[in-house]
Simulated scan of single mutants.
Amino acid sequence: MELKPLILIVEDDKTICKFIKVSLETQGYKCEDTKYGKTAISMTLSMSPDIIVLDLGLPDIDGLEVIKNLKDISNAKIIVVSAREHERDKVEALDLGADDYLTKPFGVSELLARIRVCLRNIAKENNVNLEKDFIFQVRGLKIDYEKRRVSIESEEIHLTPIEYRLLVLMSKYAGKVLTHKFIINEIWGSYMESETQSLRVFMASIRRKLEKDPTQPQYILTEIGVGYRMIDE
C-alpha cells in the first residue's frame, strides 16, 4: 500500500484550516492540524510530516519563529500561507528556510500545485530517481552535470563559469523561490547588497542565451522584489 504524504496545517482561522484540510484530504493527503506554533514544533518532532502549511499570524508565537525552530529539527518542506503581503515578509520567510509563500486569499489549485512541487523535491533529495541524478531536463532544456554541458533542443549553449553555476543552482532547487541573498551567498560566498545588480546582469545574460524571448522567460522566472525561480515542469 502506498504511504500517503502527511501534511501538517498550522492555521488559527478555523474556517481556513477546515477549507485547507478538506481540500487536501479530498486529494488523498493525510492531514493533521493545530493553531499553535509551539504545538506545531512538538507535532513535527513526533509525527515527522512531509510538508507543513504554515500561517505566520499565530496566537502564541510568530510564524517566522516557527520556521527558525522547524529548520533545526526537521527536513519537512514549509509552505507559508499568510495575509502579509509585504515583500520583506516574503523575503524573510524564504531566507529563514520556507520553501514557498502563498498570499491569502489563494486558490486550492495553486496550493495543490505548490504541494506537488515540494513532493517532487523531496523525491529528488531522497534520490528516488537515481538514474537521473546527473541530468536535469525541463521543456527542452538539458543540463548534464557530469559533462558540464547545457543544451536547448539538443543545441549546445555556451555559458561562462558563473552563468553555469547560477543555472545549476537554480536547477537543483527547481520549483522553489530562491532569494537574492541566498543565491549571492551560494555563488559568491557572502552577501553584499551591491552584488544584487551583478546577479541581475548575469541572469539577464543567461536568459538571452536560453530564452526565445528574454522578456517573456520560460525557464527562470522573476519573483519581483524577492528573487528567482526555475520552472520544474
Rank of each mutant, 00 (worst) to 15 (best):
I79C: 14
E211M: 01
N69V: 05
D99Q: 13
L24M: 09
P5F: 04
A76S: 15
K132T: 12
E223Q: 14
R229E: 14
E193D: 12
E211D: 11
N75P: 01
R229Y: 04
H158R: 12
K212W: 06
L64G: 05
R114V: 00
G57R: 03
K181P: 00
S205F: 01
V10P: 01
E163I: 03
L178Q: 08
L6E: 14
A113L: 04
H86C: 10
V168I: 09
N129Q: 13
M230W: 00
L94Y: 03
F182L: 09
I41M: 15
L56P: 01
R84Q: 15
A93E: 11
Q216M: 11
Q27N: 12
S46V: 11
S23Q: 01
I52W: 04
L94R: 00
S74H: 02
K209G: 08
V53L: 14
I162P: 02
R149L: 14
A98W: 03
F136P: 00
Y173D: 14
L54E: 11
E32D: 15
V226F: 02
G63D: 10
V168K: 10
Y228H: 07
L56V: 06
G107H: 13
A93M: 08
Q27F: 06
F106W: 05
I67R: 00
A83I: 07
M203C: 06
E186T: 03
A76F: 04
E32A: 13
L58G: 03
I122K: 09
Y145M: 11
T160V: 04
F136A: 05
I61L: 13
L56M: 11
G107K: 13
K68Y: 08
V108M: 11
D62Y: 05
T103D: 12
I162V: 14
F136Q: 03
T215W: 03
D62I: 02
I20P: 00
N126F: 06
L130E: 15
D33P: 00
R139P: 00
V177G: 07
I115V: 05
L159H: 04
F106P: 01
I79H: 12
E155Q: 10
D62L: 07
K30H: 13
K212D: 13
V108H: 09
L70C: 09
